[in-house]
Amino acid sequence: MKARVTVTLKNGVLDPQGKAIEGSLGSLGFEGVEGIRQGKVFDLELADRTDAQAKADIEAMCEQLLANTVIENYSIELL
C-alpha cells in the first residue's frame, strides 16, 4: 500500500527559502503571489496492513523522524 506524508512549517516559523522562491517568481513576472511556504513530501510504500494500522504507524514515523514537531506540522494521506 502507498501513502504520502506532507511536512510543512508551522505558522510563525520563518521560511527564508519560501521567501527566496517568492522573490524569484516575482522576477519571472508572476504577479499576485502573496506567499510561499516550502515543505517536504514523502511517498511511502508499506507492506499491507489495515488503514487504521497504517495511519498509526505513519504517525509514529512522523513523530519520531519525518517531521521535527518543534517547527513542522505533518499530514498523512493513504493513497
Binding site: V13, L14, P16, Q17, N68, V70
Partner: peptide, 17 residues
C-alpha cells in the same frame, strides 16, 4: 542535540540562505 531532544528548539536554514 536539538533533534535528539537534549536541548530545546531547532536550528533552521540561515536567514540569508
Amino acid at each position: 542535540l536539538t533533534e535528539a531532544g537534549l536541548l530545546p528548539g531547532a536550528l533552521m536554514r540561515n536567514a540569508s540562505l
